[in-house]
Design a binder for these strands. Structure first.
Length: 264
DNA sequence: AAAGTCTACAACCGCTGCGGC
DNA sequence: TGCCGCAGCGGTTGTAGACTT
């Protein structure tokens, strides 16, 4: 019987209390007890929560369970293309600072974003046989994935006129589907470097069927990709539901916050 | 239908920073 | 100033369910 099945782990206990610390999946009863306690006493002082609520869990475990699962604000839906785009943008800016990224995605937890990155984004890097932090992969993200996401966002909205005014530091991306345009952070657009575009083209082409739709010479306008042919290799999944919460206006608001953050 | 493999996600662990003493 | 406890963060692991063979 393993630790999860038993619910207890018998690592050399340091004290009487340690012998009682429960691990593994939370039960409904535990969730209920934790919710009740937090609703009455509020968040914080997690070690006290663990002690006073009667839960045989560590303070850390209580905190994690509350923040990642029980909090009423936590959203359980799939990550939308808008959110995916934001995650990619924010990760380009901040790297693996998941909590900082999560601050800009209401209802999403750092754990969820981290999991998304590891399971979906790193999977793509693996398929490209390059490191997720490599220039090749970053370029692939810029040239292939982000344009593809923008196509999807655009296709789902189909209302370019509904977008707020373009901030001066944004660039209009004309989509290939002819459905209008999407604004994008210029730092994420191709660097107009023929060399990197060419090498990326070679690499992506070697593992996928992008040849017909990828034109490096068109990268300057961001219109060199034919998104229809990308699905086979670039799985922009997890966003089948288009939540109204993530409308264009909210995306713009969050982006504006990012620029403010950079200034501070 | 069963076995094997893959994927998504919940949860744990170790480390770091911060505040109080 | 150093120590201690706590909260928070990011990396990693384990497991259940989905999918494939």
């Amino acid at each position: 019987m393993d630790a999860y099945e038993s619910g207890f782990v018998s690592e050399t206990p340091q004290s009487e209390e340690d012998m009682d610390v429960r691990k593994g999946p939370w039960t409904e009863e535990e969730d209920f007890a934790l919710k009740a306690y937090v609703n009455t006493h509020g968040e914080g002082r997690w070690n006290s929560v663990a002690r006073l609520s009667g839960l045989k869990r560590s303070g850390k475990s209580c905190r994690l369970r509350w923040l990642n699962y029980l909090r009423p604000e936590v959203r359980r839906e799939n990550i939308s293309p808008q959110e995916q785009l934001l995650i990619l943008q924010l990760h380009t800016r901040w790297g693996n600072r998941w909590s900082k990224i999560a601050q800009h995605l209401p209802g999403r937890t750092d754990n969820e974003i981290k999991n998304y990155w590891r399971t979906r984004v790193q999977k793509q890097a693996k398929q490209l046989k390059c490191d997720v932090n490599s220039k090749q992969f970053r370029d692939a993200m810029r040239y292939v994935w982000i344009p593809r996401l923008m196509e999807r966002i655009c296709a789902s909205s189909q209302s370019p006129s509904a977008q707020p005014d373009t901030p001066t530091n944004q660039i209009t991306y004309e989509t290939t589907s002819g459905c209008g345009s999407v604004q994008v952070d210029p730092s994420l657009l191709p660097e107009l470097s023929g060399t990197s575009a060419d090498s990326l083209y070679a690499q992506v082409s070697s593992i996928s069927d992008l040849t017909d739709c990828y034109n490096p010479n068109s990268l300057q306008t961001g219109s060199g990709l034919c998104s229809e042919n990308l699905g086979g290799t670039w799985n922009i999944d997890g966003g089948d539901s288009m939540e109204s919460v993530w409308n264009e206006e909210n995306i713009w608001f969050l982006r504006q916050q990012l620029y403010d953050d950079d200034l501070n």
